[in-house]
Every structure is written in structure tokens, then in C-alpha cells.
């Protein structure tokens, strides 16, 4: 697990080899087992593997790099979230819950030898139009999936001693790296 957490990178170059649908099912199953506030499970997933649709999605997503054969749009069901979780559920928990589902998906993909990249830089308006997404369903994150053709060096991390506090804000946690 720790190897997956630290080894996963955002992949921006892919082979054209398709991703088997049985593998896709495993990724989606991992995603739906994420925790969610009040067990709302606000997520829903639009799997895009039609090359024509994928090409249009790529065109309206400036953050979509590489020609990966698969993308999964993670959406939130705002109506369901509001019914169960009120405004907090609709406005905040849906975003946090979908992010946790996506992280499950990323780690599962890594474990299966696949590369991924999470994209928020897509046109919200255009993606709703192109994928016929109804009102009340909101696109949250686009996960690009494919067989990696290149990996990158890890981006720097803020040192632990700058982000961790012990018992109260400002108190150092002893022994953390500088």
C-alpha cells in the first residue's frame, strides 16, 4: 500500500493499447468502496472509451494530456446529497467524497499496472452538453486511464515539519524531517 501511495505519478503519456473492461470494473468497484459522509455515496461514474467521444472530451479539456484510451468522469449527485446531507452534504461532502473515490481508483489502477491523471481542467459547461448530463448531476473530476508510456519524477513535497503540529497549532511534532 505504501509503495502505491508513494509510487503513483500523474501520467501524461500513454500507449494506445485499450484498457480491458474487466479491469475498468475493478477500478469502479474500488472507487465505490471509498468512505462518504453519512454514507451518501454521492458519486456516479461515466466511463468513456469510445474514441470519438474521448477525442471530443480531450478537445474541451485543456488539462487532458496524452492519448489515453479511457477516461472516467466522476460526477456527484447533488440532489441525493442534499436529501440525505443537507447543504453541507450537497456543497462540501460531495466534493470530498468524490475525491476519496478517485484516490481509491488511482491506487487500484497503479496496483494493476495502469497510469492515471486526475483532471479538473475541463470545461464544465461543455462536458455537461457533450455527455448529456442532466441538472442535479455535477461533473467533479475526470480520471484519465491507460497503459503508461512515460513516468515523471515525483514533484517536491512540503517537509513534514512544516505541515504537522502536535496537540495544538504551532507545536512541533518531534523527530520530523526538516
Amino acid at each position: 500500500m505504501f509503495e502505491a501511495i508513494k509510487g503513483r505519478r500523474s501520467v501524461r503519456k500513454y500507449k494506445t493499447e485499450p484498457v480491458d473492461r474487466e479491469i475498468v470494473k475493478k477500478l469502479l468497484d474500488a472507487a465505490r468502496w471509498a468512505p462518504s459522509g453519512g454514507n451518501i455515496q454521492p458519486w456516479l461514474f461515466i466511463v468513456i472509451d469510445d474514441p470519438k467521444v474521448l477525442d471530443v472530451i480531450r478537445k474541451i479539456s485543456p488539462g487532458y494530456f496524452g492519448e489515453a484510451p479511457l477516461a472516467i468522469l466522476v460526477c456527484s449527485n447533488k440532489e441525493r446529497a442534499y436529501k440525505v446531507g443537507g447543504a453541507l452534504g450537497r456543497d462540501y461532502l460531495t466534493v470530498a467524497d468524490c475525491a476519496m473515490a478517485v484516490q481509491n481508483m488511482l491506487l487500484a489502477a497503479y496496483a494493476l499496472g495502469l497510469g492515471t491523471c486526475v483532471v479538473k481542467s475541463f470545461s464544465h459547461t461543455a462536458i455537461k452538453e457533450v455527455l448529456a448530463i442532466p441538472e442535479g448531476i455535477e461533473p467533479e473530476l475526470l480520471v484519465i486511464v491507460g497503459h503508461p508510456n512515460q513516468t515523471s519524477r515525483p514533484p517536491p513535497r512540503i517537509p513534514m515539519n512544516e505541515i504537522v503540529h502536535l496537540n495544538k497549532y504551532g507545536e512541533k511534532f518531534p523527530g520530523l524531517e526538516g
Binding site: 478537445k59 474541451i60 479539456s61 485543456p62 488539462g63 481542467s121 475541463f122 470545461s123 459547461t125 461543455a126
Partner: peptide, 13 residues
């Protein structure tokens, strides 16, 4: 056309 779409969506984002 593809470049134009890229510029328009980038401008908004």
C-alpha cells in the same frame, strides 16, 4: 477548430 476550442475552454478555466 481544435486549437480554437482549446483557447476558448482555457480562457474560461
Amino acid at each position: 477548430f481544435e486549437i480554437a476550442v482549446f483557447l476558448a475552454t482555457s480562457a474560461r478555466n
